[in-house]
Design a protein around this nucleic acid. Sequence first.
DNA 1: CCTGAAATCAATCCATA
DNA 2: TATGGATTGATTTCAGG
Lengths: 157, 157
Amino acid sequence: MELDRLDRDIIGALVEDARATYAEIGQRVGLSASAVKRRVDRLRDRGAITGFTARVEPAALGWTTEAYVELFCAGKTSPPEIGVAVARHPEVVSACTITGEADALLHIRATDVRHVERVIERIAAEPFVVRTKSSIVLSRLIDTPLIVTHNESPFPP
Amino acid sequence: MELDRLDRDIIGALVEDARATYAEIGQRVGLSASAVKRRVDRLRDRGAITGFTARVEPAALGWTTEAYVELFCAGKTSPPEIGVAVARHPEVVSACTITGEADALLHIRATDVRHVERVIERIAAEPFVVRTKSSIVLSRLIDTPLIVTHNESPFPP
DNA sequence: CCTGAAATCAATCCATA
DNA sequence: TATGGATTGATTTCAGG
């Protein structure tokens, strides 16, 4: 997948404001509106852009508490097995397998600490889970969606 | 901040597709386009919706490697101090202070494992950092932006 | 909250480099 | 292969009820 400078600029504009008009984006990157639309369509077809979403303040929806949970799993539990299991818990907003002692790291959002506790209990009850180690988030310092361009990027400006 | 059922349905529609037209959203939630726009404007004014962004495949931009880094800090390091320090490293896409042994948990995105190593070295060189403990992500299982409504939500359907 | 009208935008086609 | 401009239908935006 090859993205040139214009593609990355367009992505940057859409990351900042996904509801910007094609004309606005075009003015910013130096392209006509139709050329921008063509490139956006192509970026979606190629999977570079997977969709457009609203950035929501979780607290506004009642999700005031978040936690990270390390999962220690039984002998040979496969990543997909962990994935399908944790996906059944809607409070799990992010999950991945990792190197180190733990097998997986989950990020969960809940309404309060009691809710966090219930979610951890439910997850710990999964047959392949040996034990869990949780950390509740005290304060969020940074929450950036993604860096599109910067100095160490593989596609420098 | 009070959000009624309509507000939450509108947010849900925008989280799924931030470029949906007001008419489409209105058809889905049972409102006219202009009524939807008025509510969206109000949701933005009140800070429930903080913006609209493109969902981007990090690998398409060259960010093929991610890692979680636990930070163990010196005696009385304040959360803001950690925040401003890690914010200087653009590879840190998320950071928070947490309960448990570690003081903070960072999520970093990098171009490759070598790049991860350099970032960790830079962060470990921050004066207040005593030691770090890193886990490289092997495979991502789940990456949901946020759950808008579900059974355990504080605003049940 | 809805309707309706004017301004703006999206989507497409075609000519061009 | 990619762009810019023009056209048409849809959408946004704001007035008034």
